[in-house]
Design a protein around this nucleic acid. Structure first.
Length: 149
DNA sequence: GCCAACGTTGGC
DNA sequence: GCCAACGTTGGC
């Protein structure tokens, strides 16, 4: 079963928001590589929930993929920040999935800590210049992060 | 707020 | 197909 890591700005959706909601739509992915990863997800895959662009960037918890991918409705909504004029009902290039809350870590595992782990050197998250917002995580990387809780 | 790095756009 | 310009990401 594949594992994933997905970035969210906690101002938009934090792990505690997801805990309160139970489930939420993961939309607004506007990068083809990230979108392709969304499309290869299976229901019940697990993902690390990463907080980005915030005072304490890091992995904040775990969620579960709760739906197959589907066309991202936000791309069709003119009021949405994720609106894409090139998207239409019949041709929507963007995808979304639903995710369900699994666990909120007592403390966020800081990016600086993740960068110190030899086991995580292959993870795009810690690589210089990488901006990928959805990425696969190997079983070894998954275990390495869990050991930091 | 700064800035490095990246992805996309569009002229040629 | 090249590449400069631009907008965005995201840590610090």
């Amino acid at each position: 079963m594949p594992y994933w890591l997905m970035k969210s700005e906690p101002d938009e959706l934090s792990i505690l928001d997801l805990q309160r909601l139970g489930q939420a739509r993961w939309d607004g992915v506007r990068n083809y590589q990230a979108r392709n990863f969304l499309r290869s997800m299976q229901v019940d895959d697990l993902m690390f929930f990463y907080h980005s662009s915030c005072p304490q960037p890091g992995i904040a918890g775990i969620a579960r993929i709760a739906s197959a991918h589907y066309p991202d409705p936000a791309a069709l909504e003119p009021e949405s920040p994720y609106f894409d004029a090139k998207a239409s009902d019949t041709k929507n290039p963007w995808s979304a999935v639903d995710v369900a809350f699994v666990e909120a870590f007592k403390q966020v595992i800081p990016l600086a800590t993740l960068k110190n782990q030899t086991a995580l050197l292959g993870l795009p998250l810690v690589q210089k210049g990488s901006r990928l917002s959805v990425m696969p995580v190997s079983a070894d990387e998954w275990a390495a992060v869990l050991s930091l809780r």
